[in-house]
C-alpha cells in the first residue's frame, strides 16, 4: 500500500512536471507564469487537507469513546506535513504574486488567513516538543490543535471583512485562480491535485509509522524501567 502510494505520487508528480512545463500552452495574459497553476493550488489543497485531518484527529482523541493513541499520532503526523505544505503555499503564492500583483505580499484574505494558520500550527508543534509526558502531551496538544482550528473561520471572516471594507480591491482583481483553464491545462491541473494528494498520503503513512516506532521504543523501555525500579529495593535490603 505504502509502496503503491509512493510510486503513484512519484509518477504523478513527474508527469505533472513534464505536462506543466512542456506540453501545456502559456497563458495569454500571464505567459509562462501560469505554470505555477500546477503547483500552488494543489500544494495549498494538501496544506488545508492536512490541517483538517489534524483537527479531526484532535476531536477523535478528545472524544472519550474514540480516545486512542492512533489519533494523537495521526494528528501530529498530519500537522507536520501541513506546516511544510503551508509554508510552500505561501512561498509559491508569493513567487506568483510578485510578477502578477507587483508585490511579494498582498494583504488578501486568503493569504492572511493562511499565514495565521501557519503560525497557529507552528505553535501547536512547538507545544508538542516541550511537553514530555506522552499522556499530557496528547491531551494538551489535542485541545490546542482543536482550539486553534476553531479560530480559523473567525480569522477568515474578520480578514475578509477587513479587506473588503478597507483595501482598494483593484490590486486583488487578477485573482490567482482565474486564468482561463481548458483542455490540456485542466487535465494537468487535475493530475497535479491527484499526485500531490497521493504524496500527502505517502508522507503521512511514513510519518505515522515513525511515531509508532517511537512509542514502541517507549513501551519497551517501560519493562526495563519496571525491572530497574524493583532492583532498587534489593541493595538496601529493607524488609526482605
Amino acid at each position: 500500500m505504502r509502496r503503491l502510494l509512493g510510486i503513484g505520487s512519484v509518477v504523478g508528480l513527474t508527469l505533472t512536471a513534464i505536462l506543466g512545463l512542456f506540453v501545456t500552452p502559456p497563458d495569454r495574459v500571464m505567459g509562462t507564469l501560469v505554470r505555477l497553476l500546477y503547483v500552488h493550488p494543489s500544494v495549498a489543497w494538501v496544506a488545508y487537507l492536512a490541517f483538517g485531518v489534524t483537527a479531526l484527529a484532535c476531536i477523535c482523541y478528545l472524544w472519550p469513546r474514540t480516545r486512542a493513541p492512533f489519533w494523537d499520532r495521526l494528528a501530529v503526523s498530519s500537522a507536520e506535513i501541513g506546516v511544510v505544505f503551508c509554508a510552500l503555499t505561501l512561498a509559491t503564492g508569493s513567487i506568483w504574486g510578485r510578477p502578477t500583483w507587483g508585490v511579494w505580499w498582498a494583504w488578501d484574505a486568503r493569504l492572511t488567513t493562511t499565514a495565521l494558520l501557519l503560525a497557529l500550527f507552528i505553535g501547536y508543534l512547538a507545544l508538542r516538543r516541550v511537553t514530555v509526558d506522552p499522556g499530557a502531551r496528547a491531551r494538551r496538544s489535542a485541545v490546542a490543535g482543536l482550539v486553534a482550528f476553531a479560530d480559523v473561520p473567525i480569522v477568515h471572516m474578520s480578514v475578509v471583512w477587513w479587506n473588503t471594507l478597507h483595501q482598494p480591491a483593484t490590486v486583488l482583481r487578477p485573482s490567482l485562480a482565474s486564468p482561463t483553464v481548458s483542455g490540456s491545462m485542466a487535465w494537468t491541473l487535475l493530475l497535479s491535485f491527484v499526485s500531490f494528494t497521493l504524496l500527502y498520503g505517502w508522507l503521512l503513512m511514513h510519518r505515522y509509522q515513525n511515531s509508532v516506532l517511537e512509542s514502541r521504543l517507549e513501551e519497551e523501555g517501560m519493562e526495563i524501567a519496571l525491572a530497574e525500579r524493583w532492583a532498587e529495593a534489593v541493595p538496601s535490603g529493607v524488609g526482605r
Binding site: V132, A225, S236, V238
Partner: peptide
C-alpha cells in the same frame, strides 16, 4: 512520572480509623 514507574506494583490496605506509617529510603 513521565516514563519512570514511581510505583511499580504497590499494595496497601488501610482500615477506617487506622494510622499507618510508611517507611523507606528517599525515592522509594
Amino acid at each position: 512520572a513521565g516514563r519512570f514507574p514511581v510505583l511499580a506494583g504497590a499494595d496497601l490496605t488501610v482500615a477506617p480509623g487506622q494510622v499507618v506509617l510508611l517507611r523507606g529510603a528517599n525515592g522509594a
